[in-house]
Amino acid sequence: MQRDAEATKQRLIAAGRAEFAAHGLNGARVDRIADVARCNKAQIYHYFKSKAGLFEAVWTTLVEQIIGNLPHDVEDLPGVAVHLSDLYAEHPELPRLITWQRLESGDEPNAYAVADVRARSAAIAEAQAAGLVSTRFDSRVLLALLIHIAMLWESANPEVLAVADLPDRAERREVVRRVVEALVN
């Protein structure tokens, strides 16, 4: 039986994603990742050079997933925010990995994500110039606010969630929509 290197890499990335989301880079264990991926831990080092290299591959995959699933509709920024919020709710490991990346991997930005943020900010600036979006905030700041509002429910601490008392996903979506509408109108 021939080995499928790409399938092995993908299993390692999937297993790494779950392990890193649960434990972060420093708390993750290559033994657990290899067991879940049904491979030898030496393959982690073969394909990714190190545990940190696997984390970087997981991070790149996450960035590509988020960007690939996020619409480019500057005329419906509230809808974009709701879509992103839904993505975070459906994949709760995403906000956890974002947090771990920020805590453990430093401030080196992903070039693909930076290019996407620049392109989206430029599109918002064009919509602002055309009078479609409020100029109350610079386009770059507006996009940053939209992204973080979308992650609100998945990243808020339990005390805030207990006081906000909005366990219903539809209500949470509506809050995201209304807040972003207030920012862009």
Rank of each mutant, 00 (worst) to 15 (best):
R102C: 06
V160D: 11
E126R: 03
W59D: 13
Y45R: 13
V82I: 04
R29I: 01
A37W: 10
R29T: 08
R3L: 15
A156L: 04
F48N: 05
R11H: 07
A164K: 04
A52D: 12
A182T: 03
I98C: 01
A127E: 01
Q128M: 06
R178T: 05
D76Q: 04
V163L: 15
R173S: 15
T8F: 07
L103S: 02
Q65F: 15
A81Q: 03
L183A: 04
L25T: 00
D116C: 05
A18C: 07
L62G: 10
D165F: 13
V30D: 14
I67L: 09
R3P: 08
F55A: 03
R32N: 05
R11C: 02
R140P: 10
I33E: 03
V80F: 08
R172G: 08
Y47F: 12
R118C: 13
E108V: 12
V163T: 07
A34S: 11
Q101F: 12
A129V: 02
L103I: 05
R3G: 09
S121A: 05
V114W: 00
I147C: 15
R178F: 04
R38P: 10
L161V: 06
G16T: 02
K49C: 11
V160H: 13
A57K: 01
M151Q: 14
W100H: 09
A123W: 02
D168I: 06
A22F: 06
V36I: 10
A130N: 05
G16C: 03
I66M: 13
R38H: 15
R32M: 07
R17M: 10
L132I: 02
R29K: 15
H23G: 07
A14Y: 11
R173W: 13
C39W: 04
P92F: 14
L84E: 00
R102E: 11
D116A: 05
R17D: 09
S139P: 07
L146W: 04
G24S: 02
E93D: 15
P78H: 05
L152R: 08
N185V: 13
N157H: 10
L54H: 04
A42P: 01
H46A: 07
A7W: 00
S105M: 15
